[in-house]
Each structure stands twice: as structure tokens, then as C-alpha cells.
Design a binder for these strands. Structure first.
Lengths: 186, 186
DNA sequence: GTCTATACAGTGATAGAC
DNA sequence: GTCTATCACTGTATAGAC
């Protein structure tokens, strides 16, 4: 793997763990096995490297979600698959984590990929829910846009509760609770 | 207001905005209008001051939640009141925010008040949902513990989506979506 | 209790040699 | 492209005077 790639994936890893504020160029160089001069040759500075790394993580998150949401099965099945897929719950969401970082939120260049990723996710979930409504899987009264936001929020909030607890349990409970509400035993 | 109090509430403010990793003793002294020596006279260091400040924020969050959850009305009404109460959505949750901080999660002393606050909140919501079941407000099939986790997660995740978007809208959508699911128009 | 002085590592970057 | 040197600044304290 080339130096540039190691710098990017090193930055992705550290941004995930420590956020932008908590990640220093030196720490990135260390995990990437690259020197000071090497990093500043490839990137103008911390912000530029972070921008690239965040973009990379955003792509990964979209691809991972699309794997279930665009897969086979009914709308209900695809949502259940998305909710139930294996996750590193205690690490949290690599993109959602950045919404807590003051400097990411303050810098339009850094916030953009974060905003776009969640816009995409909510839009994609809205489509799947709407599709399920048309097929009679969901009641006519269900609002797809609201429901999509709720689904995304349960996952992001589940990570928060799990990290706070130091255990994946609250995440699993929240997801099961949402599943129950979406699939009432009429 | 005395110096100690100004230091504590200054730390609360900065921890909310920037997290533990992003908050320096010097910055706290600045917003508190206190000198270096003054801070280190009252607190052993950054971690100890943070511990006190987090405990204070935890109390505040509990009190705010209990205002609606322990108020008048049916279980459904109290949950709706809790969900709908006015919030500084773009600032996020002062306690939930800390679950993203690597050094808070890593230090048992700092994580404890965060963990306890969410344990309390989920427990309190569990009680209210259970009460609603007994009164026939919620279906017999509803699991109180799961539902409680889902409610807490929607709020925490709503903050994440809102900060990512730079707008309270996703938070409001997520909460409305949850409300719809909890109050189906049978 | 509060102040100033001092210390020493880390941050984020630039300069110039190789 | 990568390395080492250097820099001004901040982070997190400690020491001792007042």
C-alpha cells in the first residue's frame, strides 16, 4: 500500500476513534508509518487530509447501507436486514461520530460529506418505506419521510446509548423496540 | 457567583460544545474569569473538574426529564410531552455528547455519570410505558424496556442527524415518526 | 484564595537537504 | 517523495510569592 493510501486510512481510523479535534497530524503519521515531510507533501494540512478521509468513510457507509437496502426481499425484509446487520456497536458510526465534533460542524468543507451521507441515507430509507406502502406492507397512514428519519435516528442514538453504557445491549434493545413498532402483531 | 461555581459551569459549557478532548484548562479559566492558580487550588486537574462538571450536567438532565415524565397526565401524554419539549437541538445533548469522547469513555470515573444518567432515563421511561400498558393505553404486546430504549435512542440520534444537517429538521421528523408509531390511528 | 513564573511535551506547520 | 531541523504556540501542569 502506498504512503498516500496509508495516510488516508490512518486518518479514517483516528477520526473514527478520536474525532477531528482529538486527532493530530503526528498521530496520523505514526499509524501510517509516514514522516512529517511526507504527509505535508501529499496534503496541504490536517484539514485537507481529514476532508479526503471523511469522504472515503462516507463512501464506505453508503456502500454498506446499500448492500441491505438495495438487496433482495420485501421492503420490510430489507429494512430488517439493514437494522440487524452486524455492527461494531461500541465503536459507533464513523460518520455520525463526526457530528459531535465542533470543528467538523463549524467547517463547511468538513461538514458537507457528513450532511450528504445522512441526507442520502434518509432519502434511501424514505424510498424503501414508500415502496413498502405501495405493496401494502405498511399502513397507508405511515409517513415515509418521518419513518426514515426515525430509523436512522434509532441507529445513531443506539450507538450513543451503547457507548455510554459500555455495552451493546441498549443498542440492541432500541433496534428491537423499533422493529416491534414497525411490525405490530395485529 | 463564586469562583468555584464559575469554573464548574464554565467547564459544563465547554464540555457540551467541545467535549473533554477539545476542552483545555486554559479555556475553562478564560470563560470562568479565573486564573491558573485559582483553578488548580480548587481542583486537582482537568479530569477532576470535568468529573464535577459532568455530574452537574447529569443532575440537570435528569431534572429536566423528570419534569415531563413525572408530571400530570396519562402515560402517553407524558411521553409526548417529553418528546415534544423545547430543546436546543443544534447544541445536542450535554450528556449524550460525551459518549462520543474517547477519553470520557476510557476513564471509568468520567464515564460513570454518563452511563448512570442513561440507565436512569431508560428505567424511568420503562416505568412510564409499563404504566401505560396497565391502563390499556398501549397494546399488551409492547415491550416496555425495548420501547424505552427506542425512545431514548430517537432523541439522541435526532441530535446527531440535526447537527450533521445543520438544521433541526431531521430531529423533528424523527420525533414525529416515533410519535406516529407509538400512536397508531387504528 | 489568587497571582505570576517556569517547565516540558505536544500541535500544526515551514524550510531546506537528500 | 521523503527526511531532519526548526518554530511559534498551546496543553497541562507545578512552585512559590503575595
Amino acid at each position: 500500500m502506498e504512503t498516500v493510501e496509508r495516510l488516508i486510512s490512518g486518518a479514517q481510523e483516528l477520526l473514527w476513534e478520536r474525532g477531528y479535534v482529538g486527532t493530530s497530524p503526528k498521530a496520523v503519521q505514526l499509524v501510517a508509518g509516514a514522516g512529517q515531510g511526507s504527509m505535508y507533501h501529499h496534503f496541504a494540512g490536517k484539514a485537507e487530509l481529514a476532508k479526503v478521509a471523511i469522504g472515503r468513510s462516507a463512501e464506505e457507509m453508503r456502500a454498506a447501507a446499500e448492500e441491505q437496502l438495495g438487496g433482495a426481499g420485501t421492503a420490510r425484509e430489507r429494512i430488517a436486514a439493514y437494522l440487524g446487520r452486524e455492527r461494531e456497536v461500541l465503536k459507533g458510526c464513523q460518520i455520525g461520530r463526526l457530528a459531535a465534533d465542533p470543528e467538523v460542524v463549524a467547517d463547511p468543507e468538513l461538514r458537507a460529506p457528513v450532511a450528504e451521507t445522512f441526507e442520502w441515507l434518509r432519502g434511501r430509507l424514505t424510498e424503501v418505506v414508500a415502496e413498502g406502502k405501495q405493496n401494502g406492507e405498511f399502513p397507508e397512514t405511515l409517513d415515509p419521510e418521518r419513518t426514515a428519519a426515525t430509523i436512522a435516528a434509532v441507529l445513531q442514538g443506539g450507538y450513543v446509548l451503547a457507548r455510554a453504557a459500555g455495552s451493546p445491549e441498549p443498542f440492541n434493545l432500541a433496534v428491537q423496540g423499533l422493529n416491534d413498532l414497525l411490525n405490530p402483531t395485529t
